[in-house]
């Protein structure tokens, strides 16, 4: 085994050349790609984080909207309840009023009818009494009785102002 110094020189030259060639044509681009991938992953992580945050925000908004809707519905129901109660009261009130009005009217009608009936009866009675009187006058009138009767009428007329 001899030591051939040119092998040493050739080894050094070959190695240095290999180093620069690899650096330029192989590892340089590969490092670039790895760096790019690292950036890509970083970017994807941050965008995923953003998406998560956005989703959370949306969820929060949805929750709030749901809460709001629930509250609105509750209010509407409450309002409907109070309105219906009020309306029922109003209806009952008006029904009562109507009933009392009807009753009053009925009473008035009765009164009028009664008055009318009374008047009718009175005229009937007076007519009858005139008829009776004329009949009596036709049959049994005499001087004395006539005078008496006239006096009586006069008294009545005079006595009633």
């Amino acid at each position: 085994m001899e030591f051939v110094w040119t092998s040493t020189v050739i080894a050094i030259v070959a190695f240095v050349l290999l180093y620069f060639l690899l650096n330029k044509y192989a590892f340089g681009p590969l490092f670039g790609i790895m760096e790019k991938r690292r950036e890509l992953v970083q970017e994807q992580i941050s965008s995923a984080e953003n998406n998560r945050k956005q989703a959370e925000q949306h969820l929060e908004e949805q929750k709030q909207a749901l809460q709001q809707a629930r509250k609105d519905a509750y209010e509407i129901i409450e309002q409907a309840k109070t309105t219906s109660t009020k309306q029922a009261d109003v209806i009952i009130e008006s029904a009562k009023a109507e009933a009392s009005r009807l009753k009053e009217e009925a009473v008035q009608d009765i009164q009028t009818e009664k008055n009318k009936a009374l008047a009718a009866v009175r005229s009937e009675v007076s007519g009858l009494s005139v008829k009776i009187a004329s009949k009596i006058l036709d049959k049994q009138i005499d001087q004395k009785a006539q005078e008496q009767l006239v006096d009586q009428y006069l008294n009545e007329v005079g006595g009633k102002p």
């Binding site: 040119t6 050739i10 080894a11 290999l18 060639l21 044509y25 192989a26 681009p29 590969l30 991938r37």
Partner: peptide, 29 residues
């Protein structure tokens, strides 16, 4: 010049370079 050493050095260097080039021939992220 030791011919066998020179051949061996050249073959090794070329193999290493070829392997590295093959690795980066179709770079993709």
């Amino acid at each position: 010049f030791d011919l066998s050493s020179i051949i061996a050095i050249l073959v090794s260097s070329i193999l290493v370079f070829a392997l590295a080039r093959a690795a980066v021939s179709n770079l993709s992220v």
